[in-house]
Every structure is written in structure tokens, then in C-alpha cells.
Amino acid sequence: MRLLDSRRALISCGIAALCTLTACAGYTPAPVSDTAALNTGPTALDTEPADAPTDAPTVQAVEDEPETGTRQTKWGPMSEADQELIKKVRLASLWEMPMAQDAIQRANSARVRQVSKEIAAQHHVLDRQVRDLAAKLKVKLPVQPTDQQQDWMADISGRSGSAYDTTYVKWLRLAHGQIFTLIGTVRGTTQNTLVRRFSEQANAAVLNHQRLLESTGLTTPESFPTPST
């Protein structure tokens, strides 16, 4: 009888212990309140030092990285003048294309609107040619107009009516006239076969644009540069 009572007591203790373990198994510990050791912020690679300069220069135009001297290519030597022509033709497209597109919509004269449509289309072709040429010859191209060209754009855009037309024709004709000398120099001196062919394409385009602008009847004496003495 005493042995039976002892076994019953052991069984009761075992059941109690099992219940205690079961209750503990369902317990979930509370989150750690001390998060000082957790790195929840950005890593060092995502941030800059507090004393990092904020006015670091950015690469924008080719003028910031001048390329000097003659370079050898498989199409022949490429001189500084050759490279200058490629860059200046690109610069011309950067401001003349958007202004021609603007004039198609805003010009007062129907003739100026028609001329602008032709100039815009031809500049689109010329710009594709100059970008293809620059890629082959590894010439870095400008990405925005010069300060002077931006001034011309602002002067044109700030006008309306007939004043818009005359200012537009004035600056475009002046710009085309300025590049003629460089085109002639490169055509006569370049030893690079690709540049020589491109100079002829550029010359034809510029001459045609000059004629188109003059056909508007707005190339007054005021639109011509002052003759050199």
C-alpha cells in the first residue's frame, strides 16, 4: 500500500513538472530595450564627411578640359583646329536647333517660320554627323551652349512680333558668319580625311543657312558685324 502511494506521488510530481515546461515553451521574450548596439543608420559609404566641400567642380563643357596638340588617327593626323571645328559645329546645333524650333511657333513672319523649319531639319542632320564624327575620332563634345550663345537665346526669346523675327535672324546670321573662317581654314589645312569631308558638309550647311536667313529680307545693315579696318 505504501509502495502504491509512493508511485502515485511520483506520477503527480512528473505531471506538474511537465505542465511547467509546457508553459515556458510558449513564452516569447520581450524585445531588447537597449538598441545602442544596433546599426540602423546608413553605412559610411552612403554619407559624406561633415567637412566635405560642397562646391566641387562638375564636368559640363569641353572647354573645362582643353585638348591640345595634334593626335594621330587611322584617318590621318587631327589638329587642334580640326577638333575646334567639330566642337563649334556641335555648339552651333546646341543653341540654333532649339531657337529654330521656337521660331517655328513664335515668329511673326510666315517666311521666318518656313526658314526656321528648314534650318531646324538641316541642323538635326548636321548634329548627327558631328556626333558620329566625334565618336570615331574620340573628341569630347560640349553639352551646353556658351555664355554668349545663351545671351543670344535670351535676347531672342525676350522679344515678340517683328522684333522677335529681326533679332532671331540677326543673331543666327552673325553666328553662321563667324564660323565660316574656321571652316575654310580647316578645309584648306586638315590632313584628316574624315574632318576634310565633314568640313565640306559643314560649309554647305552654313552657306545654305545664310541664304535662307537672307531670304527673309531682315538682314539689315544693323544685322551685319562691323567691318574690320
Score class of each variant (00 low, 15 high):
Val143Asn: 05
Ser160Val: 11
Lys88Asn: 13
Glu65Lys: 14
Lys87Ala: 15
Leu133Gln: 08
Asp151Gln: 15
Arg159Gln: 14
Arg8Ala: 10
Arg197Tyr: 05
Arg113Phe: 10
Arg211Asp: 13
Ala9Glu: 01
Thr185Asp: 08
Thr216Glu: 09
Asp165Leu: 03
Val115His: 08
Gln122Phe: 11
Leu141Val: 14
Thr185Leu: 15
Pro53Cys: 06
Leu174Pro: 12
Ala100Tyr: 04
Ala205Asn: 09
Leu38Arg: 07
Val143Ala: 06
Thr229Phe: 09
Thr190Met: 02
Gly69Arg: 02
Lys140Tyr: 09
Ala61Arg: 12
Thr73Cys: 04
Ala17Arg: 04
Pro66Ile: 01
Ser157Met: 07
Ala56Ile: 07
Glu80His: 02
Val130Phe: 03
Gln191Ala: 12
Pro227Lys: 03
Asn192Pro: 14
Ala135Arg: 13
Leu3Met: 11
Arg90Thr: 11
Gly188Ala: 15
Ala121Ser: 10
Glu63Pro: 14
Thr181Asp: 05
Leu174Tyr: 10
Ala205Leu: 07
Pro77Met: 03
Thr185Lys: 14
Ala30Lys: 07
His176Glu: 00
Asp55Arg: 00
Gln178Cys: 06
Leu174Ser: 15
Lys136Gly: 13
Ser199Arg: 00
Ala9Ser: 08
Arg197Lys: 12
Ala9Tyr: 01
Ala9Trp: 03
Cys24Thr: 06
Trp171Tyr: 10
Thr166Arg: 08
Val89His: 04
Arg128Asn: 08
Thr181Lys: 01
Asp64Ala: 09
His176Asn: 15
Leu182Ile: 02
Ala204His: 05
Leu212Lys: 11
Val186Ala: 11
Tyr164Ala: 07
Val125Met: 07
Lys140Thr: 15
Trp75Leu: 13
Asn203Cys: 02
His209Gly: 15
Ile11His: 02
Asp46Met: 00
Leu3Cys: 11
